[in-house]
């Protein structure tokens, strides 16, 4: 329980921040609309990733999948924020 909870809380938070930053950068909408969508979606993503960590057969596999998603999303963050795409 505890390893799953810790992985879910921290990886869920990091992934949700990273994905939401990408969403806010990529959506062709007004800034205020993107901020609102980001704020609402972020918590659902966070909760969703925590749920996935509890669902998964092994915490190692769940963490690995989450870390993979975080790396991909983080690379896109870097490209969008610092790569002038």
């Amino acid at each position: 329980m505890w390893p799953r909870s810790i992985a879910g809380i921290f990886l869920g938070l990091l992934i949700s921040i990273s994905l939401i930053l990408n969403l806010v950068q990529l959506l062709p909408l007004a800034q205020d609309v993107k901020l609102l969508i980001g704020l609402l979606t972020a918590f659902v993503l966070w909760g969703g990733i925590m749920t996935y960590c509890y669902y998964s057969q092994s915490i190692g596999r769940a963490s690995l999948n989450c870390a993979g998603l975080l790396v991909v999303s983080g690379l896109l963050n870097a490209a969008l924020l610092y790569g002038n795409i």
Binding site: L21, L39, L40, F43
Partner: peptide
């Protein structure tokens, strides 16, 4: 209640992330 409560109590986390990165 869960989503609005989270926005009221924890939005500071995303607010900080948006402020720092965007």
């Amino acid at each position: 209640f869960a989503i609005t409560g989270l926005v009221f109590n924890l939005s500071i986390i995303y607010q900080l992330a948006f402020a720092v990165f965007l």
